[in-house]
Amino acid sequence: MAELFLFEKQTQQNLKKDRMAAKPATTSTTYSPIDPIHKTRPPIFSNSDVDWLRPDSRSFHQCRPAFFRTGAVNSAAGSAYAEFGNTKVIVSVFGPRESKKAMMYSDIGRLNCNVSYTTFATPVRGQGSDHKEFSSMLHKALEGAIILETFPKTTVDVFALVLESGGSDLPVVISCASVALADAGIMMYDLVASVSVSCLGKNLLIDPVSEEESSQDGSLMIACMPSRYEVTQLTVTGEWSTPNFNEAMQLCLDASAKLGKIMRSCLKEAASDVQE
């Protein structure tokens, strides 16, 4: 049985929840990188290291329920809405449209990304302005997946708006943006699924919420194309030893493979609705 998920301090009720989530037959969309029933890898931390429960009573290696819906914005070529716990994001894709005259000729398409926060997204009222760092990270995460050769001389705009920030904002934005791009019919090699891991003390927490992010000692975020098994974006902060880093990376890759399936099923659902 999976010791990894059976912490002494967890209540019986939580345990039941965890097992339910692990079974593919249940309707819950919660996903976990490791199947806790058929676990093969040894636990990275012994039970003695576990000294707290997560705010939303998840186990350390359990992601929040992921929800995707396409067609959130009518006027856009493609759009998607994603909700991971309290993190709520809306992404719309416009174009391809003709590149601005001032731009130099380019035989491949351009990608223009913008991430912004609403003023009410954070507990303290923010400025709601553009998030330049996230915009450039989103751009890098997506450009490796999009077949830019298919729309020369033109630009595709990707606008992401974080409606509510509940932690792991950037990974949610990236995943949601790739669903929106697929909805817009932009040619891609594969969907981009993104997951982050926080390191708190000795423990690795997948898909951290804001409270966990603010007290983390290190973080690792991966955006990858699950079917091609390629990493398009990777950021690491904090100090990591090599074995720890490998562990975290594998965890992220496994989780994004599962997230990729959820994204795919959302797109399939949308497509079958249209046919009916």
Partner: peptide, 8 residues
């Protein structure tokens, strides 16, 4: 020899 940050 620890990794302190990484960006692609």
């Amino acid at each position: 020899g620890h990794i302190c940050g990484m960006i692609k």
